[in-house]
Simulated scan of single mutants.
Amino acid sequence: MAVVPTPLATALGLRTDPDDRVLDGRGEPVAGRYACGNDAHSIMASEYPGAGCQLGAGPTFGYFAARS
């Protein structure tokens, strides 16, 4: 069986503001829409440094979204 490296998930999800509100094409927040974790644009740009890297970002930015 061949074993080859492959991406595990997306790294360029939906763009968000500091409160994790999803932004539209003009950069304006979409009412009632939030994204965090793998659904949001990664804080690591288009890189995926390794398994588990989203485990800190998901809950942290989810917390910010819940507070807003």
Rank of each mutant, 00 (worst) to 15 (best):
S68E: 11
R26E: 12
P59D: 03
G62T: 05
G37S: 07
G13D: 05
L14R: 02
V30N: 08
G58Y: 07
T6P: 00
A57I: 15
T60N: 14
P5M: 00
V3D: 07
C36L: 13
S68N: 15
V30M: 06
A51C: 10
G56W: 10
D20S: 13
V4G: 02
R26M: 11
S46R: 11
A45W: 12
A65M: 02
G50P: 04
R33G: 04
A66S: 10
S46C: 13
T16M: 03
F61I: 05
F61A: 03
A45N: 15
R33H: 14
P5W: 02
P49N: 06
P18H: 03
V4K: 00
P29W: 06
A2L: 12
R21S: 04
P5A: 05
G56T: 14
A35R: 00
P59A: 09
G37C: 02
S46N: 12
P59L: 06
L12Y: 05
T16V: 15
V30Q: 09
A11V: 07
V30S: 08
Y34Q: 04
L12A: 07
C53F: 15
F61P: 01
M44V: 09
Y63K: 14
G50W: 04
R33Q: 12
L23S: 10
S68L: 08
M44A: 15
T6Q: 04
A31I: 12
F64T: 08
P5Y: 06
L23W: 09
E28W: 11
Y63S: 15
R67H: 12
P5Q: 01
L23A: 08
A65D: 00
R21C: 02
A65K: 00
L14H: 03
L12W: 05
S42Q: 06
A2N: 13
G50Q: 06
A65R: 01
G32I: 09
Q54K: 08
T6E: 04
M44T: 14
G56Q: 09
I43M: 11
H41K: 09
D17M: 03
G25V: 15
N38K: 07
E28I: 09
H41Q: 14
P7M: 03
Y34G: 02
G52N: 01
E47I: 07
C53K: 02
Y48S: 03
A11M: 02
P29S: 12
V30L: 09
E47C: 12
T10F: 03
Y63I: 13
E47N: 10
L8E: 03
Y48C: 07
E28L: 13
L12E: 08
L14F: 12
V4P: 00
C36M: 11
P7K: 03
D39Y: 03
V4D: 02
